[in-house]
Structure formats: C-alpha cells, structure tokens
Design a protein around this nucleic acid. Structure first.
Lengths: 150, 150
DNA sequence: CGAAAATAGTTTGCTAAGCTAATTAGCGAT
DNA sequence: ATCGCTAATTAGCTTAGCAAACTATTTTCG
C-alpha cells in the first residue's frame, strides 16, 4: 500500500484532499454557528492561545496563518465573550499578551466534551483504525502547514 | 495503536481535526485566489459536476452541501469563466442540467497537473505512508459527510 | 379542467472572516 | 531628538455562506 507514490497519484490525492477539506470546513462553519456561538476561527485561536501560552497578537496571527487585522477581529470576539485576558507586554509598550482565562478554559473543556459536536458525532460511527487515521491526518496537516513560509 | 478509542480521545481527535481543517482550508483559500483564479468552492463544484455527470443545480447544491442560492452564485462564476454548459432539463421546464464543457475539462486537468498547488507541493515532502494516510483521511471525511442528513 | 400548493431557480440583503491600505502609538538607532 | 520601523487598530473591500421573498413552472385535486 502506498508503495506507488507517482506524481500523478500525488496530485490526485491533493485534489481529493482539498475538496474534502473545503466541504468539511463548510459543514463545520454551519455547525459552529448553530451550536457553540463561537466560529471555527475563534475556536481555533482560543485553542492555540491555550496551548502556546500567553503571546502577542502578532505571534498568534503568525501561528494561525492569518494577518494581524484579522486576528484583531478574532480577539475582539473572544474578548467580548469574556474568554481571554490582555496584559501589557513588559517588553514592548505597543503590544500586550493574550491569555485564556478561567471562563475560556471552561469553554474549551466544554467544547471538547461536547459529544454532539459535528465531528465527534461522526467519529463515533467509525472503527478505531479509521479514527486513528484521521488523528494522524490532523497531525500531518498541521505539520505541513508548519513547513510553510512562502 | 488506536486500540483505545475512549470518548475522551475521540472528542480530542475531533478538536484537533477541526482545527487542522479550519487552518488548512484558510491556507487553501489564500492560495487559490493567488494561483488559479478559481475559488476552492468553485473548484470543488466543477470537480463534482465532472464526476457526477450532468445534474441540476439543486442536486449539485445537495452534493456540495450548500443551499441553492449559494450554488446559483457559484454556477454563475463557473459560467462566466466559460467552464460549464447549461442545457434545458427535458423533464422539468423550471430547471436545467449543468455539465462541464471542454474548457472545463481542460481546466480541471490543468489544476490536477499543477505541481505547485499548495497541497501537492507539501505532499511531496512526506513519505508514501503519510501520503497514504492523508488519502484515506480524505475518503473518510467524504464518507462521514455522506452519512449526514441532519 | 382549472385553481391552489409545491418546487426550481434567482434576487436581495445580511453576516462572517479573510485581505490591503492607512492611522496611531511606541521603540530604537544615528 | 528625530526619523524610520514595527505593533495594533481602523476603514473599506471581497468572497462565500445564509434566509426570505419573488418568478415561473409543475403537480395535485376538487
């Protein structure tokens, strides 16, 4: 299996993967609006802040691969929801550090717990090997995104 | 491996997968605008029309999991690019059938060929087993989307 | 048969979430 | 101390989704 990784099968895989990601991401967005009151972008940002400790909006924007103005908006949304705290950056008066507060951690835990979340609901219909495949795919997607820089 | 599929690991996998998909889809959109002049949505729709033969806008909307007005817009875009043909639906005067024309097939082939496409470029850095994992993940994502219907 | 209900596609107007360009405020080097 | 750089924001644009309202046709049924 996967013994033959010709360029053709490779670009073919790329096509299918792209379509699958586009469609799933669409479904996620719809679901998110209906279910959590927090957009997928905001959720992803919150998770990143939680994982990578207090960081500046610029750093966060870079991690999430969006531009700073976009992150400004997302942070505004998270702040309105009362999920993050801003503290002044001791090293730079223009900037500040963002951290998840208790409410944010609560929300993240709740999101993770949500059995009815779109993907979790569907994952429960798969067998363990298939779930594992998707778990590894998620890691791979993050990894190839990391390599990026132009 | 994957022997333990507790509900915890399952919802955890769901979280990671969702974030990975959201971020990758963002990267794809940016890339698409810059590179092909055709949005990921339009590309996915074109591929579906090509794969599933001539079909009505409603059927297409259902396959792509968008609402009819959204598909109207996407089709308008594909038509402006001269990639599809509409023929009257012999069975229903209100409707019509959409099919990919030569230019559309050309474009699809070109897209698939594009070695520099975002995902293809990154896939080439992975080893065959990893590419295979992503290929199977794409299938799984499509499959769990199929199950849907509320 | 003909009127009412249902359905296909479109139009209109809204929202979310990305972007770029321009602005404001603080940092740092000459 | 000033001038250029960088951080965040603001303003305005775009894309792509949605729902509701509209038009045209089909289907149903009295």
């Amino acid at each position: 299996m996967a013994a033959k990784t010709t360029d053709t099968s490779l670009t073919d895989t790329a096509s299918h993967l792209r379509d699958a990601i586009v469609r799933t991401s669409r479904a996620l967005r719809q679901e998110a609006a209906a279910e959590t009151g927090l957009s997928p972008s905001a959720t992803a940002a919150l998770a990143t802040i939680n994982r990578s400790g207090p960081l500046t909006p610029s750093e966060l924007a870079e991690l999430e691969r969006v531009k700073r103005p976009s992150m400004t908006r997302t942070l505004g949304c998270l702040e309105r929801e009362g999920l993050i705290e801003r503290t002044p950056d001791p090293a730079d008066g223009r900037s500040f550090l963002v951290a998840v507060n208790d409410a944010g951690r609560e929300r993240l835990a709740r999101l993770r717990r949500r059995k009815s979340a779109y993907l979790a609901r569907r994952l429960r219909k798969l067998d363990p090997a298939e779930v594992d495949t998707l778990a590894r795919a998620a890691e791979l997607l993050e990894r190839i995104r990391e390599d990026e820089r132009g």
